[in-house]
């Protein structure tokens, strides 16, 4: 485990000096816009956080860093697992920051005067139980789902295939939804929504536990699969 943490630290050092500034800029712009639009818009930077560490894959490939990893006392499996953990960690940090900002934007209340219709929908959603926390949790789950699939594909097809894997991920998800619609009449999606609504209504805490748990769990499964791919991989 400590080996994985050391690898995560390494990922963070590499990315900190590469993408942090543009990313922080992005996040700030979005959050600021969110103050004017709606608290839900403030949380959307979370969507981009995970993608911030994507350059790690191309950096690995361009500098043939398998040589460095090959000389360090680490296993290939742990390299893959650490990569997923880095994604989950960065996304979680972005989540916390944007949630704090979202709550703050409610306090400050600019969107209430500037966008009264959105304020109205905000209030309605609040009443229905779709709180900021719940939306944030949901977005986190979606991001983990997307990143989990994309990173696994990157390990499968090679670190340089960023564009390909992004499109492929999108297609897979789309394909899944379409297949569900065609084969099961959209039943799977229905079951999903039902479960989520029930949880939401029953207990917000339970919702968080289940969805965060599922997100991290999904990341872990993808991490383990990628670990296996890496182990067998011919270099």
């Amino acid at each position: 485990m400590s080996e994985i943490l050391k690898l995560v630290k390494m990922d963070l050092i590499i990315i900190k000096n590469k993408s942090v500034l543009p990313f922080v800029f992005f996040m700030s712009v979005y959050m600021f816009l969110g103050y004017i639009i709606s608290p839900y818009a403030v949380i959307s930077p979370v969507l981009f956080a995970g993608f911030m560490i994507q350059p790690l894959f191309s950096i690995d490939e361009q500098n043939d860093m398998s040589r460095l990893y090959g000389s360090l006392p680490v296993s290939r499996r742990n390299r893959a697992i650490a990569r997923f953990m880095s994604a989950g960690l960065i996304t979680a940090i972005a989540l916390v920051i944007s949630m704090i900002a979202a709550f703050h934007s409610v306090e400050v209340g600019w969107f209430k005067e500037l966008n009264p219709e959105l304020y109205e929908s905000y209030c309605i959603m609040q009443l229905e139980g779709i709180t900021i926390g719940i939306v944030a949790c949901f977005i986190y789950a979606v991001v983990c789902f997307i990143l989990g699939i994309q990173y696994t594909l990157l390990y499968l097809f090679g670190a340089s295939k960023e564009a390909f894997t992004m499109i492929a991920t999108f297609l897979i998800i789309l394909g899944f939804i379409i297949a569900d619609g065609l084969l099961f009449d959209g039943k799977t999606m229905d079951i999903f929504s039902n479960v989520l609504s029930r949880l939401m209504i029953k207990s917000e805490m339970l919702f968080y536990i289940v969805l965060y748990g599922a997100s991290v769990g999904f990341l872990l499964i993808c991490a383990l699969i990628s670990g296996l791919i890496m182990k067998k991989r011919e270099i």
Partner: peptide, 28 residues
């Protein structure tokens, strides 16, 4: 694991990301 604690490898080209500085390499 034990072997790699006790060996070093030097390659023909830099195996670290070029945008880093020496202090980052050490801390990494």
């Amino acid at each position: 694991r034990e072997i790699k604690q006790r060996i070093s490898v030097v390659f023909d080209s830099l195996c670290y990301p070029p945008h880093l500085k020496i202090k980052h390499i050490e801390s990494m």
